[in-house]
């Protein structure tokens, strides 16, 4: 097995770990956004275990790469990734959403090691990411800011203010990578039945962004695309459209609105974990 293939295999195993942690976290809490956490799991594994320059021992280091979860409800996926990466013990995940926890329903930058920006009201993350990237240029620091958004979230007007600004000929914000977890399902319906945003890459392109489209569950493609994005972002803003499946990895959760904001009960949890284990063992 080549080194590259071995690395991809390892990242896939990590993504499976993240999925197990997501299910355990939401099952234990009895609440949480399971579907959108499962769809982002591979992206999170690629970012935090390969592409991003972060150090769990030194979460505030000045020149670290930044990450913003603009789809702020997908915290089970975010917290599971941070815990698996070592920012805090995985046992802390048991406190998710409970009174007094550092792991609020939506991320709080002052409570959770590794969280760079508080979020939760959809549509705000990209603007904050631009501010970080602009500050990096302003201060002469070398880092990349990654912002993960949802497809449903993409109807928020503020996102398009940010996209227009960053891609403007006289602006061209550098070192910003917008990632869309295009999982085709939102809270109340399929995305195409709410506001069909269709060809998202084309929209970013006409606003002056360099775009890359990938299968958001193909780890080899993802890693390559994210690394490419990081380099391309030195010249101007980059959007990575990751086509994903909501609830990915658990057959009865996939493509289902019902699993947007729901936690598995005991029997669902058992069944879901078995599916992840089975896929991981292949």
């Amino acid at each position: 097995m080549s080194r590259q293939r071995a690395e991809v295999a390892e990242l896939k195993q990590i993504a499976a770990d993240i999925r197990r942690l997501i299910l355990t976290t939401t099952h234990h809490a009895g609440v949480g956004h399971t579907g959108g956490s499962l769809s982002e799991a591979d992206i999170m594994a690629a970012l935090f275990f390969r592409v991003m320059n972060v150090d769990p021992e030194n979460p505030d280091m000045t020149d670290r790469d930044r990450f913003i979860l603009s789809k702020g409800h997908a915290t089970p996926g975010y917290y599971s990734t941070l815990a698996r990466r070592g920012f805090f013990p995985t046992s802390v995940l048991d406190s998710f959403d409970q009174l007094g926890t550092i792991l609020q329903g939506h991320p709080d930058m002052h409570k959770v090691p590794g969280v760079d920006m508080s979020s939760g009201s959809l549509g705000q993350g990209l603007s904050c990411g631009l501010g970080m990237a602009m500050a990096g240029t302003d201060l002469g620091l070398d880092f990349t800011t990654f912002v993960l958004m949802g497809d449903g979230e993409s109807t928020e007007g503020q996102i398009w203010e940010a996209v227009l600004y960053a891609g403007a000929d006289n602006v061209r914000v550098k070192n910003i990578v917008a990632i869309v977890d295009y999982n085709k399902v939102q809270l109340a319906s399929l995305t195409k039945d709410a506001v069909d945003i269709g060809n998202l890459a084309g929209k970013y392109q006409v606003f002056g962004w360099h775009t890359i489209e990938v299968d958001g569950h193909d780890m080899g493609q993802l890693v390559q695309a994210l690394e490419q994005a990081k380099v391309a972002a030195k010249e101007g803003p980059v959007a990575l459209i990751a086509h994903t499946v909501k609830g990915k990895g658990v057959s009865f959760m996939e493509h289902q609105c019902a699993w947007h904001g729901k936690a598995p009960n005991a029997s669902e949890y058992e069944k879901a974990m078995a599916e992840i284990d089975q896929e991981d063992a292949r």
């Binding site: 913003i68 920006m117 705000q124 603007s127 501010g131 602009m134 302003d138 620091l141």
Partner: peptide, 28 residues
């Protein structure tokens, strides 16, 4: 001029970008 950011007529993005910038210790 180097410390001035013209964000255009887009108040929501302006405030968000200022917030992000503040996380790096600048004071917009």
């Amino acid at each position: 001029p180097d410390r001035f950011y013209q964000m255009g007529i887009a108040e929501a993005n302006m405030v968000g970008a200022a917030a992000g910038m503040a996380t790096l210790g600048l004071t917009p």
